[in-house]
Nucleic acid binder design. Structure first.
Length: 253
DNA sequence: ATGGTTGTTGAACAA
């Protein structure tokens, strides 16, 4: 079973890329972030034609997450419980014997900013929710755009990024607390090497120069560790014309 | 070099 995550940076702008990637990679589940459209505009029929069931949790202009899956989805949650938030950033569903939680973590803009504080508050609320989800669902997959590079191996220039947003100690500690719930970074389980990234800025030819960060992650619960066959980051779509700034990341269970 | 690029909405914001 192949499960993938992709920050598409506008599904309207990226629909052709997503369709092309689905036809080549053939994931059973794809969690998307930054669909940047309201739920009723989600192109459900086009995905159904490719054999996918659809769930969308969108809003106008910004944010928005969606999950498509080859089998039906149940027990859907579209917001972090007990956390007032206008922004559409989470989507959870049960798919077969898996609980899948799609996240578009707050970017945070700059350390010390209001948006950074919102990010830390959001991560704290996420932690409380995932404690419940982890207790309820042993077979848990938490994936998406985490907007946190877990450690310096995930950063092209750790000195330049030292204590800046996406790399700060407070963000990394919040990430570590998520792992303390019994979650594993599937990519790191199978590859210790640095220099492998999932996001490259559009500016300064960052992709060509591999000036990136690994901020798109697929976390799996320890109960699923024995089923982990492979994990990867597919750089190909980042080479296409008018790409998303993120690459799809995936696991095979 | 506080630059640069892209997407959405209509000059500014977010990433």
């Amino acid at each position: 079973m192949k499960i993938a995550s992709w920050n598409v940076n506008s599904l309207k702008a990226r629909m052709e890329h997503v369709q092309a990637w689905l036809e080549s990679a053939k994931p059973d589940v794809l969690a998307m972030q930054e669909i940047k459209m309201e739920s009723h505009l989600f192109p459900e029929q086009a995905f159904q034609a490719l054999g996918y069931h659809c769930l969308a949790n969108g809003q106008k202009t910004y944010n928005g997450v969606a999950i498509i899956a080859k089998t039906p989805m149940q027990d859907v949650i579209t917001q972090i419980p007990n956390f007032a938030d206008e922004q559409r950033r989470v989507l959870a569903a049960t798919i077969g014997d898996l609980r899948v939680i799609d996240l578009y973590v707050v970017n945070g803009q700059e350390v010390g900013s209001e948006k950074y504080q919102y990010k830390l508050n959001w991560l704290e609320a996420l932690q409380r929710w995932l404690e419940d989800e982890a207790a309820r669902y042993p077979n848990l997959v938490v994936l998406g755009d985490f907007n946190i590079a877990p450690d310096d191996r995930d950063v092209h220039d750790p000195e330049a990024w030292h204590e800046s947003v996406l790399c700060s100690t407070a963000e990394r500690n919040a990430y570590k607390r998520l792992l303390d719930l019994g979650l594993l970074d599937s990519y790191r389980e199978l590859d210790d090497n640095g220099g492998v990234f999932s996001w490259w800025d559009y500016r300064q030819a960052a992709f060509r120069r591999n000036l990136g960060l690994r901020i798109d992650l697929v976390l799996i619960s320890q109960a699923l560790r024995g089923q982990l066959k492979a994990a990867g980051i597919d750089r190909e779509p980042r080479k296409w014309d008018k790409p998303s700034d993120h690459a799809p990341v995936w696991v095979e269970l």
